[in-house]
Amino acid sequence: MTTLADPLVRLDRISKHFGEGETRVDALRAVSLEVHPGEVVALLGPSGSGKTTLLNVIGCILDPSSGSMELDGELVLKDGAWLRRDLKRLRLDKIGFIFQFHNLIPFLDATDNVALVLQLAGADATTAHERAIGLLKYLEVDHRRQAMPAKLSGGEAQRVAIARALANKPRIILADEPTAALDSKRAAIVMDLLRRVAVEQQAAIIAVTHDEKIFDRFDRIFSLRDGWLESETNSLQTA
């Protein structure tokens, strides 16, 4: 387990290349960073800079070529090799995902979309249902608990998606363009929610974004270019 001072995410010289020889593309080059509990950080960079690749590596869905990674105090990657075989379980237990287009399961209502993650982790149906409703209340969207995703507004759907990401109390939340599909007002609400989650649950939130209107909502911003971690700034500097 981590102490308050320990980072929840620690990357040490993570590299990832695709192809070999003349076709080789270096998507990440020796990226090292740390994200601490309660922090909301952004990965910024032009298209092809490697930010989505980095998010995929942190999410344990892409094998890096080299480097090491610690998640929630556990060394899960060493010298480019996974130390855990059950990466799905690792994701289920430690990582929550928030998507650009919320990616709610269209044939499940709002409550079941959240409860599903809990049941996948082993919770019984009643417990999962109760906790799902609790999360929807926490995110102030419980009045839409029985609505199907197609009937939810963009903001409501993103809040349900955040509830789903929080279902198993993960300490690391990865967000891929979480506000890209929202207007300014709803984007601000979603970022406030993420901030609240980070502080209250002592979680680390890492978001890939191009959305300039929310830059000031991040504690730190990591800029990537051509696979290099080019700079690390705090939001005030950027704003």
Binding site: G59, I61, K88, R89, L90, R91, L92, D93, F97, F99, N103, I105, P106, V117, L120, A121, R164
Partner: peptide, 13 residues
Amino acid sequence: LRQIATLKLIGAP
């Protein structure tokens, strides 16, 4: 497929 990818991503066995 997209729903299945999401399920796999969130850890569905």
